[in-house]
Design a protein around this nucleic acid. Structure first.
Lengths: 333, 333
DNA sequence: CTGTTAGCGCTTTCAA
DNA sequence: TTGAAAGCGCTAACAG
């Protein structure tokens, strides 16, 4: 038989104090006498009292909940990032509500409505492209939000992340510096991600260098990488390097090349993007771009909570990725 | 300048109806005249009205939120599972609140307190071993919960998942059937997971067969798999097969063996556990145990929502995994 | 089919 | 430092 759980007035009655005082104690107000506080705390424990979050949210208009809508979770780099967000929010008593949009703006809008209807205090979105209605909704309700996984100095809304354009350009430049002038770049569906589009644009922009970059679109998973690698091989284009916009894709390329007896980097160099946990362990170790996934999660969570606490506007934060040189890219003749 | 958002009474005033009627419409009650409903809906849209979740939760004592506490998210099999849960809850208007325990019972307890303080209606836990205080808390407050990633007919609490003991035993039996009698089994930290312990016990139980199974504990990631593989090689124990309790571990084994020029399955067979998305694409394709991660997510979400709706007790559900035969295990002489 | 009204449990003035 | 009391926005019982 479950014991009825205490409410604030039970604690008040038990201690002979008023509900106001109990409330003060529960909220850590300083104008409470120490022994009064102790009495309240003791009674709370005795009655198994825990403030009702709904009542609290109703009066304060705050739920201590932050929502993140991500395109997918089946992608290590997002997992790492979400993990960092959750741990950071947790430290300050906030909770993370998660929704998955499958990279679709309409789904994202619906998820956001639901989460708003759940009382989320702030939103974390991926990328900069969203349903206009969603932006309207946020503006009307003054819901704080940030765009992540990107950094865009020109954005009206705060962005916290890295510059995908520059990162991809940097990757190509690195390859060029290693003597590669004919590169195949593999990326996931452009439709689903403005980050991917930015990377493609960045890789293209590097053509101010004496370099040719051809693009291969595929599914964003190991199998997709394999398919693209096969296409690259059969294209007979004689690329000296393959740049993958995700390590997951690179893994597929490794598998395909291995089967086809194409040696990395002997016959062709392969470069990744993400620096997943196995990237350094594969054979040969994968040269890739390290993305500050955890750091980004922490920054995002902190920025939002700070805004919620102080009311100061959220400022964007640029984070940086960098080339991790390993063994899958070699100097081309 | 943000427009003030409507409340229920604004909609009532706007339509000339009562708040009760508006409430009925917002909750999909059937005893409302169609044109009345339409008027309300129109006014809601016009006033940008969205019911206040806190007020709703306060009166109904329900937050339409379900909490999941998982040990880690950086592990594809959990990602897949969480994805299924989220999508299923979403379909019925529920939201997922996520917490990560890092496999620690104390952290789990604290996370649960926080989520309870957030108003979660039900909990999803991994495995069967939890802080006693957590179980007490749930009982006192009559919070519904399920244990997942396991199935245990003998459990007092509902379990939804697969039988880790049987699965591991089945894996060893499969290996035995292929003629392997000297097997190295690699697993993650036993301390952190009762599922891992069950698997180990199951693999040991298979010793009713003429088989020797040695266990190697390591970190649950690619690097850990590599380390264990190295240990196996240098043990000079002449195993004919390696059983990994996770595909992630198997990947590490592949990398290590590849570097050491040990052929799979020519020199030694390797079997995995999880059936991650790349398992069939690696070279050679990995023979593994498929785990019904998505199905489990759907079942868990459905079971909890059904319970919340009907009040009927939650019944456990056994899900099954099966051996996926590919190319990394061969018949031993 | 619709309206009136009493709370739900808490925070927060305002007074003491 | 503490208490009294007015809501926060909504649902649901009851009445009509």
């Amino acid at each position: 038989v479950p014991i009825k759980v205490g409410r604030i007035r039970d604690v008040a009655r038990e201690t002979g104090l008023s509900v106001a005082t109990v409330s003060r104690v529960m909220n850590g107000a300083k104008n409470v006498r120490p022994d009064t506080r102790d009495r309240v705390l003791a009674a709370s424990r005795k009655l198994d009292y825990l403030p009702n979050p709904a009542a609290r949210a109703l009066t304060t208009n705050r739920s201590k909940t932050i929502a993140a809508i991500i395109p997918t979770i089946e992608h290590s780099v997002f997992a790492k990032y979400i993990n960092a967000i959750e741990q950071t929010l947790n430290l300050q008593g906030y909770s993370l509500v998660l929704a998955i949009s499958n990279g679709d703006a309409q789904e994202e809008l619906e998820a956001a409505r639901k989460l708003l209807g759940m009382g989320a205090d702030a939103f974390i979105l991926s990328g900069a492209e969203h349903h206009t209605e969603l932006m309207d909704l946020f503006q009307r309700r003054e819901i704080p939000f940030v765009f992540t996984s990107i950094w865009d100095a020109a954005s009206v809304h705060p962005t916290i992340g890295y510059d995908n354009f520059e990162l991809a350009r940097g990757a190509v430049e690195y390859l060029v510096a290693q003597g590669h002038t004919k590169i195949a770049a593999i990326h996931g569906p452009l439709m689903e991600s403005d980050r991917t589009r930015k990377r493609k644009a960045g890789a293209s922009a590097a053509s101010e260098f004496p370099v040719q970059v051809d693009f291969y679109e595929t599914e964003l998973n190991v199998s997709g990488g394999k398919v693209a690698a096969k296409a690259i091989l059969s294209s007979k284009k004689e690329y000296s390097a393959v740049l993958c916009f995700s390590d997951v894709l690179a893994l597929g390329v490794f598998f395909c090349f291995h089967q086809a007896a194409v040696r990395i980097p002997g016959d062709i160099s392969v470069m990744g993007f993400d620096n997943l946990d196995w990237s350094g362990h594969i054979e040969p170790p994968l040269t890739t771009i390290n993305l500050p996934a955890s750091e980004m999660g922490v920054s995002v969570a902190d920025a939002l909570m700070k805004h919620l606490k102080t009311g100061e506007p959220i400022s964007g934060i640029q984070l940086f990725g960098e080339v991790v040189e390993r063994k899958s890219v070699r100097l081309a003749s």
